[in-house]
Simulated scan of single mutants.
Amino acid sequence: MQLVVGRVGRAHGIKGEVTVEVRTDEPELRLGPGAVLQTEPASAGPLTIEAGRVHSGRLLLRFEGVKDRNAAEALRNTLLIAEVDPSELPEDEDEYYDHQLMDLDVVLADGTEIGRITEISHLPSQDLFIVEREDGSEVMIPFVQEIVTEIDLENQRAVIDPPPGLIDDRAVVASTRDAEAEAGAAAQGEAKAEAKDEPRGDGS
């Protein structure tokens, strides 16, 4: 099974290093020296990682044969793809590979369907599920234990307990609309009251 494990960013320095947007929970394994990666577009690879290091919180990689800034810049936006055994599982039972989570149904504890996971976004602070809803809209669900309470691979679903407003902001919109209506009504009432108090002509 092929999995996207990273995306090449801009060149760093003049010796062929590139910044990499990591898309795997195991960068030490997938993006370590000696790893051979397929690419998208395929014409850019395969690429063999020669060396890697972390600089200012970013992963920097150098590939064999990429010796200068121009060659590194030519790889910008290239997707890095690793070959993974579908039966392979993370060592930690509370961790999951992206391919295990893709296409899971997202539901509430009472079974209410929210949508389907179409993408996992790996951010520096946390991972996010990109969930496509039935109407085609998308909602982002932080992959944290307080919100994602269960991953049920057997039944292909992720159970969530979202805080107010995370997946449905209609209540917020309604309350805002009501507040605006109340404010408008109050303004009209004040205007009428002022009109009553104003003198009507000079009395002649």
Rank of each mutant, 00 (worst) to 15 (best):
D127K: 13
P33M: 08
A181H: 05
T78S: 03
N77S: 12
L31W: 09
T149V: 15
F143I: 13
T24Q: 10
I130L: 14
A35S: 15
D152P: 11
D92I: 03
S175M: 02
A186Q: 13
G165S: 04
L60Y: 10
A187F: 10
V20S: 08
Y96D: 02
S121T: 11
E93F: 06
G16E: 05
T78H: 03
Q126A: 11
R30V: 04
E150A: 07
A179L: 06
A35V: 15
Q156T: 02
T24Y: 09
T78E: 04
D168L: 09
L61D: 00
T149P: 01
P164N: 04
V107N: 08
R10A: 14
G165Q: 01
E93T: 14
D135Y: 05
E64Y: 05
R23N: 09
A183Y: 02
T19Q: 05
V139C: 13
P33K: 01
H99W: 06
I120L: 12
V107F: 05
S175Q: 02
E17I: 00
A193D: 07
R53F: 12
V173M: 11
A44Q: 15
A193C: 08
D105M: 12
L61T: 02
G201D: 10
T118N: 10
I81S: 03
P46K: 07
G9C: 04
E88Y: 14
I130G: 01
D127E: 11
L166H: 05
Q38I: 03
L89R: 11
K196H: 12
H12P: 06
R10E: 14
E83Q: 00
E190Y: 08
D94H: 08
G201R: 13
R53H: 12
L3R: 08
V8E: 02
D85W: 09
R157F: 06
T112K: 14
